Simulated assay, not measured.
Amino acid sequence: MKSFSAGVVCMVVLLVLAWQTALGQVTLVLKKVPIGTPASDTLFLAGNINNWNHRSSAHMFVRAANQQYYLTVPELTEVLEFKITRGSWAKGEILANGAARGNRGFSTATAADSLYIEVENWQDNFSASTKPHTASANVQFLSHTFWMPQLNKSRRIWLYLPSGYHLSKKRYPVLYMHDGQNLFDSFYSYSGEWEVDETLDQLARRKKLEIVVVGIENGGEERINEYTPWHNKQYGGGKGDAYVDFLVQTLKPYIDSHYRTLPGKTTTGVAGSSMGGLISLYAAVKYPEVYGRVGVFSPAFWLSPELYQYVEQCDLLPSTKLYLMAGAREGEQMVPDM
Score class of each variant (00 low, 15 high):
15 L>A: 15
15 L>I: 13
16 V>T: 11
17 L>M: 14
21 T>E: 12
24 G>R: 11
24 G>A: 01
25 Q>K: 14
27 T>H: 01
27 T>G: 08
28 L>C: 02
28 L>S: 06
29 V>G: 01
31 K>C: 01
31 K>V: 03
33 V>Y: 07
33 V>N: 06
36 G>K: 09
36 G>P: 03
39 A>N: 14
41 D>T: 13
44 F>L: 08
48 N>D: 02
50 N>Q: 07
51 N>H: 13
56 S>P: 00
56 S>A: 14
61 F>L: 06
61 F>A: 09
65 A>W: 11
66 N>D: 15
70 Y>N: 02
71 L>T: 03
71 L>N: 04
71 L>A: 08
73 V>T: 04
75 E>A: 14
76 L>M: 14
78 E>S: 14
79 V>H: 13
79 V>Y: 04
81 E>C: 01
81 E>G: 06
83 K>E: 05
84 I>M: 09
85 T>V: 09
87 G>T: 13
90 A>F: 01
91 K>M: 08
92 G>T: 02
93 E>R: 11
96 A>C: 08
97 N>L: 10
99 A>M: 08
101 R>T: 06
102 G>K: 14
103 N>K: 09
104 R>C: 00
107 S>G: 01
107 S>K: 08
109 A>R: 09
109 A>G: 02
109 A>M: 05
111 A>E: 05
114 S>C: 10
114 S>N: 12
117 I>H: 04
117 I>T: 08
120 E>W: 09
121 N>C: 07
121 N>E: 05
123 Q>E: 11
125 N>A: 13
